[in-house]
Design a binder for these strands. Structure first.
Lengths: 126, 126
DNA sequence: GGTTGACTTACAGTTAGCTCTAAGGTCTAC
DNA sequence: GTAGACCTTAGAGCTAACTGTAAGTCAACC
């Protein structure tokens, strides 16, 4: 009835340490427990974890994710604020994409330049 | 007659601390000094710093940048290895772009979902 | 000639985000 | 009934990448 921390670690790719840390820090809302006091994750937790990963891996700091999650507990009154947070983050992701694309180009030019130097060096060897 | 560390900090947006740290760590090759022992940056340093920033901001760890810079000092023999490093990194950037794009989409869906919840809530208010 | 300001070094401190250890509880299988 | 696998908490430790401090050098101005 529900997933153990081990299972969730496997399913999410996060370590058990990290999962406990997230709960401690309020990044993940309190996970329910079984009769022995062991964590008992549910599908909603999995879903939330997937969103958390998405936010984290796109560069949102833990503290901000926590803020977002805290808003979740406030129900419908907080929805518009949550939306604002997500929208602001999405703009940041888009900026990063632009940034990365221009950097990929720059690196491309560097590679081309290095290759030309290499050709030159080979020509001199003859 | 070369730029002071303060000027370079302004030009690059990196702090003086960071610039010294980079030199100490070998991320930036040794900077030449004036008669008083003060750092005296040149345009080549600026150019290299621009590449370093590009690598760092696209997620290359300091240690790897150092490796790349160390190769620079080995001259033409190291060119192909440098190219390999850059090409590998470029692939990583491209993966990240893909990843970010899919995450941006996911966040979009979430925003749409939240908006629909909000509309619902408003409808109930009437 | 004293103070101000920019620089130097060596090294200690900070932050985020984990990651690990120690000490212990509980269940299952032999 | 004990070994092993699983879990728990509290709290210490780690890594990367800075960031700050202390003590000192040097040149320029009043």
């Amino acid at each position: 009835m529900g997933y153990s921390i081990k299972t969730i670690a496997q399913k999410t790719g996060l370590s058990q340490y990290t999962l406990r840390y997230y709960e401690r820090e309020g990044v993940l809302p309190e996970v329910s427990r079984d009769a022995n006091g062991n964590r008992c994750f549910h599908d909603e937790d999995l879903e939330l974890l997937s969103l958390i990963r998405c936010l984290k891996d796109t560069g949102m700091p833990i503290a901000e994710i926590k803020q977002f999650i805290t808003l979740s507990r406030e129900g419908r009154e907080a929805l518009s604020e949550q939306c604002k947070l997500l929208e602001a983050h999405k703009r940041q992701i888009e900026e990063k994409i632009q940034f990365f694309q221009s950097f990929a180009q720059k690196i491309d030019h560097k590679i081309a330049y290095f290759n030309s130097l290499e050709q030159e060096a080979k020509a001199e060897m003859k």
